[in-house]
Design a binder for these strands. Structure first.
Length: 412
RNA sequence: GCCCGGAUGGGGUAGUGGUUAUCCUCUGGGACUGUGGAUCCCAGGAGCCGGGUUCGAAUCCCGGUCCGGGCCCCA
């Protein structure tokens, strides 16, 4: 009986894994260059961790289950809440700020699409403890460096939820939340229809439209000041100064909203310019206050990169290591194993025949797997304490003393 | 959860309500028991699953599964 993969999951073959690992390696490297250290949290958590953060409605979109002890658990749908839980549980008295990064799989019960799977990977960072614009600048700069380093073609949009929050401060909470979600979706038609069905102040309605249409360079701050004069724009201006000074390219976009209210200030998103269709957001982040849900009120800033989407559009190709195939005549299998150990000690990948096939088949296999060299183990050569080394690209072959094999392999 | 379109050996495909399901590739073996890529030969392996219509279904119909595109959602 053939068992299929569960819906929305994937198998990764070696070639793809090599590419994914290479991308992952670059992400880790850059995060570490910024002083971030890796953490890991459990694959499943108490369901309540996620409902506390995102509301009961989230259960529909989550892999939630009861364990044999009757506990309500859930496979993690994201990592910000688990990281904050970990912070509150065991790191709250560590010296601030804390810099953490993670790379892990997450699970969501959603309809799969291009770039959207039920098991997917996120790479993200959290900078915990600072409420300064410098925290936003650092995290944005880090995300930007990663995307640049991977040669992605992307647009970075930076906004501030404070503007819309201030505009909507006198609006009933669930109405404001609904408006924020429509803005988040960029559903201007839906927003217009909704605003028409509720009795909203005409002046306010106009201001909402004006604000969410503001996208562009930092000069739009002046426009925004005209619309919301009582907002303190100093924070945003300082952030822009900092990002400009390190040549981060971005657009301000005051139409970036977040449906959930723990986002407090700067929010940012990056979109791939090509290759992903409807699911083109590859990065999302911002400043939030989430830890207070679990008992400690601490400002934090972070982002998560959609690893699978990035892997899909990233052109990068992993470098293939040098591979040597050890081929032996019948009866010399153990000698081949001995030689393979010497090759591996030299730091070169060695593949030995385990099928007891003919020399011809072994060489053919070496060719198929794109080995760089074949080391041929035969009676004649062994008598001289040597092996034959064949360059599979040129076809050239030479006899090398086994004692000198290690040095020889390092020289090619 | 909703709408649209798909599904034939491991991969890519052809064709058809009616003998043994086409071709390429692939995998294993051989021609060739001291040397790969070429050629030839042999072998292996398939109509997503379940039901219905029919003398007969891989083909037509219904349901499900999975894939692709979109919606919902996007923490």
């Amino acid at each position: 009986m053939k068992i299929e993969r569960p819906r929305g999951t994937r198998d990764f073959l070696p070639e793809e894994m090599e590419k994914r690992r290479e991308i992952e390696r670059k992400m880790r490297k850059i995060a570490e260059l910024y002083g971030y250290r890796e953490i890991q949290t459990p694959t499943f958590e108490h369901l309540e961790l996620f409902t506390l953060k995102s509301g009961e409605g989230i259960i529909e979109e989550i892999y939630a289950f009861k364990d044999k002890g009757g506990r309500n658990l859930a496979l993690r749908p994201e990592l910000t809440a688990p990281v904050m839980r970990m912070f509150v549980n065991e790191c709250s008295v560590m010296p601030k700020p804390l810099r953490f990064y993670y790379f892990a799989n997450c699970f969501r019960y959603e309809r799969p699409q291009k770039g959207r799977y039920r098991e997917f990977w996120q790479f993200g960072v959290e900078l915990i403890g600072s409420s300064s614009y410098l925290a936003d600048a650092e995290v944005i700069s880090l995300a930007y460096d990663i995307m640049e380093n991977l040669n992605l073609k992307f647009d970075l949009h930076i906004g501030h939820v404070g503007l819309l929050r201030l505009l909507l401060k006198d609006v009933e909470e669930n109405v404001a939340s609904k408006i924020m979600r429509l803005i988040d979706k960029k559903d201007s038609k839906g927003l217009e229809d909704y605003l028409n069905t509720i009795s909203i102040d005409r002046d306010l309605e106009g201001k909402i439209y004006d604000i969410i249409e503001l996208i562009g360079d930092r000069s739009i701050i002046e426009d925004a000041k005209g619309i919301i004069p009582n907002f303190d724009f100093e924070y945003i201006e300082k952030l822009c100064d900092c990002l400009d000074s390190i040549d981060v390219k971005y657009n301000l976009d005051f139409g970036i909203a977040r449906g959930l209210d723990y986002y407090t200030g700067v929010v940012f998103e990056a979109y791939a310019k090509e290759g992903l269709g409807a699911q083109n957001q590859i990065c999302g982040g911002g400043s939030y206050r989430l830890a207070h849900l679990f008992g400690v009120d601490t400002p934090s800033t972070g982002f998560a990169l959609g690893f699978d989407r990035i892997a899909e559009i990233c052109e990068l190709q992993a470098e293939k290591p040098k591979v040597v195939a050890i081929v032996a005549f019948k009866g010399l299998e153990n000698e081949a194993f001995k030689i393979s150990r010497i090759v591996r000690e030299a730091g070169v990948d060695a593949i030995v025949d385990v099928m007891q096939r003919s020399l011809k088949k072994q060489l053919s296999y070496a060719n198929d797997i794109k080995a760089d060299f074949a080391i041929i183990v035969g009676e004649e050569e062994l008598k001289q304490k040597s092996v034959a080394i064949k360059d599979l690209k040129t076809g050239e072959q030479k006899i090398v003393k086994i004692d000198e094999l290690r040095d020889y392999l390092k020289s090619v």
